[in-house]
Simulated scan of single mutants.
Amino acid sequence: MLLSPFFWANILFWPAVIYGGLCLFFYFFQDYFFFRPEMLPKNFEYRYPFPFTEHTFEMEDGGVINALQFKVPNSQGVVFYLKGNSRSLKGWGKFAKDFVSKGYDFFMIDYRGFGKSKGRRTESILLNDAQTVYKWLSKEYPEHQIIIYGRSLGSGIGARLASWNDPRMLILDSPYFSFYHQIRQYGWWLPLRYLLRYHLRSDQFIKKVTCPIYIIHGNKDRLISYAQGKRLHEISADRSTLITIEGGGHNNLPNFPEYHEHLYDILNEQEALVMYTK
């Protein structure tokens, strides 16, 4: 006996409803999956063993960006560090020591919704906030003394920032080929091209970067695969150097002596400055 169309419609109805519900849930709540912020009260006092200045930037749309600036005597320049997707400056500020110890000032912001930073967060807002702060920083330092360092989530923001400006160099730490490419590994069953509100096309941004690029990636990274950093290098091979940390994962590269050795060499690489100033 042939089953009626009504029967098949009944069979397919609930799976379709459940799938549609999951798509809607992902679309409206994706920020909760991608960002794990630590929020801080406005009067929170940062404490570090080396001198720093706290800055507050008020954006045109009413958003607020909180930042920390660490300075050393006779610095060689400044590292603008764009952090990952978790915690706040309270925890990330400890990475300043990796750069001030090498003779560089260190500057870092909290994205909106993190720490003391406030306001609505979208991809374009993340990028525009970083650009606004970069323009302020470029008044404090000549661009050939500004190094952009993008870590994990911040790698896409850093690549876009470098494509808009002329920093001394761009350092990408554990970067993704694109945010879409990264999320597709886990959400392949969703129509991400229509649902994803953050794309961060590092693969497109990096093509427009003209300064020297250094890509640092652990070959045992289980969160953002080493293959993604390698692909970014391949599409920018004339300007980029791929540095592999053998056995390095996603969150432990500073535990490897090789990381610090390579970082020292990069920050003191005169050839990179020569390439930039030609």
Rank of each mutant, 00 (worst) to 15 (best):
Y111L: 06
G248E: 09
K83Y: 13
L24F: 07
C23S: 04
E140R: 11
N251R: 10
K135D: 13
L195F: 03
I266R: 03
K118L: 12
A16R: 05
W92C: 01
R168I: 06
I266E: 03
M108W: 00
S174Y: 01
W136I: 08
L170D: 04
E45Y: 14
S240T: 05
S101M: 05
D61W: 12
E143Q: 14
W189R: 14
I235E: 01
F205K: 00
K208H: 03
A67M: 14
I215F: 00
G103A: 11
Y214N: 02
Y226P: 05
R87F: 15
E38W: 05
S174C: 12
P167T: 05
P191M: 10
Q204F: 00
F114E: 04
T53S: 15
K71G: 08
R120G: 07
Q145K: 14
Y141E: 09
V78L: 07
K230I: 11
E143V: 11
P257C: 03
Y198M: 01
E58P: 09
K83F: 03
H144M: 08
C23D: 03
Q185H: 15
M39E: 15
Q270P: 05
F6W: 14
T210S: 13
E123P: 00
Q76R: 15
Y81I: 06
L263M: 04
G247K: 15
S240D: 07
T244V: 12
